[in-house]
Design a protein around this nucleic acid. Structure first.
Length: 422
RNA sequence: GGUGAGGUGGGUGAGUGGCUUAAACCAACAGUUUGCUAAACUGUCGUGCGGGAAACCGUACCGGGGGUUCGAAUCCCCCCCUCACCGCCA
């Protein structure tokens, strides 16, 4: 959520930033400021009324103690009017707050200065490319065919026991996935990220904290018997560890990494996008989350981008880095870099990581703050990224490293897999 | 799942309707004292919202949500969580 204080103080700059998403924010800002003024006026009236009530209650108490029951009773009679006013003002305040909230919640995060104006993926900027095409055998196949022939991922059995989008990894497929997870986690912890194994289900409060609720409820699997939600990404439990928290400046930056399965209903997806490993209801991901002092959040974002890029390079995968344009960025992000690996046999780019700075957009809702010395608490900046999403990395590895004599495993993984070909 | 006991500031913990603007202690921070350390003493020591140039003032918050009352940390109802014992269980 954008900060109302920011909307008041940096009105024009924010309007310019939001224009990159194609949003004309000025009239919305005006409405917000007007509504906030109304809210303040009601708040003031309510506080004054409560103050009068409190004083009167105190006087009644004093009269009783002094033995003046009659005076107390007389004063009591006067409290009814104040009570009515209080009740009415409380209702008014609540609806003013709700109306304000409804306006603010509609606004996405304001894009960073470096973000290009644009409407869709076509306007994203390629900021880096790495690697070259690996010569493929004549009869190169997409990964779903390779998986079936080699017997390493069984989509049909997944359908039988659960449904589409829940593959079963078998044998060397399972082992390769486990190897990748361990390799990614080791790589992250070596870079100073603390490893976590968070819960895979979250409660409602956590859903609100990271913004899945109330709007994107339909994207998550919901266990109604216990009112818990299956996590769509490790970002949710990890970031929520810091909900309602005041950190010390010296605690920052907080750097976390976690491997979790991710559960997504993906309602409405169809076609070639969902073929094979491209889009699943359950998949594994290793995530990195950073909680930063606002002064250094963009330096840390660069660091994370560097980190993920080197991870892909160590696997020898051809990839490119995109700076997303205003229109293609997620609702909560101020600046996002996407990493896409080249899927040789499908001849398309597959997103394997998305690294973002949310500035205070998430922390405002999470109430995650930091305090330097005796200053008032300030909101932190939150950042996160994948390092990496497993299925698409797996797809790229299988497709790019297929040879006449099987799939060649990149050298860095061999200590983890225990085999060098599939 | 059953029964019982609990949930109060960064921590320990008092507080059964008004004398609580939540005691006291510990921790923390600042200062005084000191050759250094330690100790002692003094002071500061929550968060949100609103008002104010500021000092400061008002208001809300004692697990969460309702209710009773002129007045609730305190009484009532619902929910959540923790602990103990029992049951079940990898």
């Amino acid at each position: 959520m954008l900060l109302i204080q920011d909307i008041r103080e940096n009105h024009d700059a924010l309007v310019a930033r939001l224009a990159k998403r194609g949003i004309a924010a000025a009239p919305i800002f005006d409405a917000i400021i007007k509504q906030d003024d109304a809210r303040k006026a009601i708040q003031k009236q309510l506080d004054d009324t409560l103050s009068a009530s409190n004083n009167m209650a105190k006087q009644i108490g004093d009269l009783f103690k002094a033995g003046d029951a009659q005076g107390a009773q007389a004063l009591k009679a006067k409290t009814a009017a104040l009570k009515d006013t209080t009740k009415e003002l409380q209702v008014q305040l609540q609806s003013a707050v709700d109306a304000l909230q409804a306006l603010v919640i509609e606004l996405p995060n304001a894009p960073h200065d470096s973000v290009a104006t644009g409407k869709s993926a076509a306007d994203n900027e390629v900021v880096a490319t790495w690697g070259s095409d690996i010569p493929l055998p004549k009869a190169a196949k997409p990964h779903w065919e390779l998986c079936q022939e080699l017997g390493i991922i069984d989509f049909e059995t997944g359908v039988k026991i659960t449904g589409a989008g829940f593959p079963v990894y078998v044998n060397k497929g399972a082992r390769l996935q486990r190897a990748l997870i361990n390799y990614f986690l080791d790589y992250n912890t070596k870079a100073g990220y603390t490893e976590y194994q968070p819960p895979y289900f979250i409660n409602e409060a956590s859903g609100y904290g990271t913004g899945q609720l109330p709007d994107k409820e339909g994207q998550m699997y919901h266990m109604t018997a216990d009112n818990l939600f299956a996590i769509p990404t490790a970002e949710v439990p990890i970031t929520n560890m810091y909900r309602d928290t005041i950190l010390k400046t010296e605690d920052l930056p907080v750097k976390c990494t976690a491997h979790t399965p991710c559960f997504r209903r993906e309602a409405g997806s169809y076609g070639k996008d969902v073929r094979g490993l491209n889009r699943l209801h359950q998949f594994d991901k290793v995530e990195i989350v950073v909680i930063a002092n606002p002064e250094e959040s963009y330096r840390l974002l660069d660091e994370m981008v560097q980190h993920v890029g080197e991870l892909l390079q160590s696997l020898g995968l051809k990839h490119r880095v995109l700076r997303l344009c205003g229109g293609d960025m997620g609702f909560t992000s101020a600046l996002t870099y996407d990493f896409e690996v080249w899927s040789a046999a499908q001849e398309r780019w597959l997103e394997v990581s998305s690294v973002s700075n949310f500035e205070t957009f998430q922390s405002n809702r999470l109430k995650c703050r930091y305090r330097s010395g005796k200053d008032k608490p300030q909101l932190v900046h939150t950042l996160n990224g994948s390092s990496l999403a497993l299925p698409r990395v797996m797809a790229a590895l299988l497709e790019n490293y297929q040879t006449e004599s099987g799939i060649q495993i990149p050298e860095v993984l061999v200590p983890y897999t225990g085999f060098s070909t599939i």
